[in-house]
Design a protein around this nucleic acid. Structure first.
Lengths: 193, 193
DNA sequence: GTCTATAATCGGATAGAC
DNA sequence: GTCTATCCGATTATAGAC
């Protein structure tokens, strides 16, 4: 991909995280990317095209981000590794907030845009499987389908809590506590199986 | 509430579910409701006011159909009651789909629109407390804070699963199975406390 | 490829008649 | 209470120079 295109998409992702899909202004995007509006329209067909490519870009980047974390492979015990992986997404730092916000926008946009769904589903699957694998290290005797289901639940739980946090309904510390509680409950249920 | 207001709010809920909050145009709302744009502004302060009242309308309506199921002929045991209340929101029927879609949109919009947050938080709290109360009937010995936390988790879990369903990442039957599993895990954890 | 300047459109909001 | 007509600022999108 052309460097200019990437530069604009990165700026668009930042802006979507800050203002939302609805709040993205082409002129503001140009300023954020350090180019002119004319150039935006040279590289993209129209505003919808920008949006579509940016949302694809966000879901691609999410895959890389998750993969990078796995490759880091620190010698934590499985349970701590699981907890850290999930709690990583519930931190009030600029980068996490931006990623989570953009991800939420992507998820919400996909409800009305079928073209986005495949990418989103793929990125979600990678994430679910990573969590399921970590759960498998915590409870090696648990059957695979139970691990898969717990992975789906915990990631969906995290998305739900994240949205409440971002929409101002939950303070971050409380959201983290709640997520820890959910992990406890799921791990206990896998042990009970 | 004035019949005209209700008529407009019903149209707004339909439109939000169909096009998203982002796609709601006052002119289109007028057409959908069968009135003029001028009348919309007679009944509502501005576009945000429409959104805010639609949010209230949607959560009231959700309560109403929840309450409707409570008033069934044969009273269910608390556990079944809890499960049915939550699963009610995960059904592929027009009215539930419309409500869930609109709710998801408003949640996502609140991330960028502070004006929506208070109402959203209030509506969420009512819901969380209702679920906590049902949990309290299932596990009367559980301490109140544990019930509150479980209520917050289960409702956030449901929102997360609902978004995945609506964005095409999860089939409805599977989403329902996952939610049942989450209820099992939470109830078991409360028993263990 | 990139910019500046500007045309064209969109959409929220209001005025005023009935 | 309700409508028609319209205003006007905000944004998208294009033209044309470099």
């Amino acid at each position: 991909m052309a460097p200019r295109t990437t530069q604009i998409l990165e700026a668009a992702a930042r802006l979507i995280a800050r203002r939302g899909v609805r709040g993205l202004r082409v002129e503001e995007l140009a300023a954020e990317a350090g180019v002119s509006t004319g150039l935006i329209y040279y590289h993209f067909k129209d505003r919808t095209g920008i949006l579509r490519q940016t949302l694809e870009f966000i879901s691609d980047r999410a895959e890389r981000y998750t993969a990078g974390h796995v490759a880091r492979a620190e010698p934590l015990d499985p349970r701590a590794e699981l907890e850290e992986t999930l709690l990583l997404e519930l931190q009030d730092t600029p980068v996490v907030r931006e990623n989570s916000t953009a991800w939420g926008e992507l998820r919400a946009s996909a409800v009305f845009d079928a073209d986005l769904r495949d990418d989103l589903a793929r990125a979600t699957l990678v994430w679910v499987q990573e969590v399921a694998a970590l759960l498998g290290q915590v409870q090696p005797t648990a059957p695979a389908p139970a691990l898969a289901a717990a992975g789906e639940r915990l990631t969906a739980q995290l998305e739900g809590l994240s949205m409440r946090w971002l929409s101002g309904g939950l303070r971050i510390d409380h959201a983290r506590d709640l997520l820890r509680g959910a992990i406890d409950a799921e791990v206990a249920a896998l042990r009970g199986d």
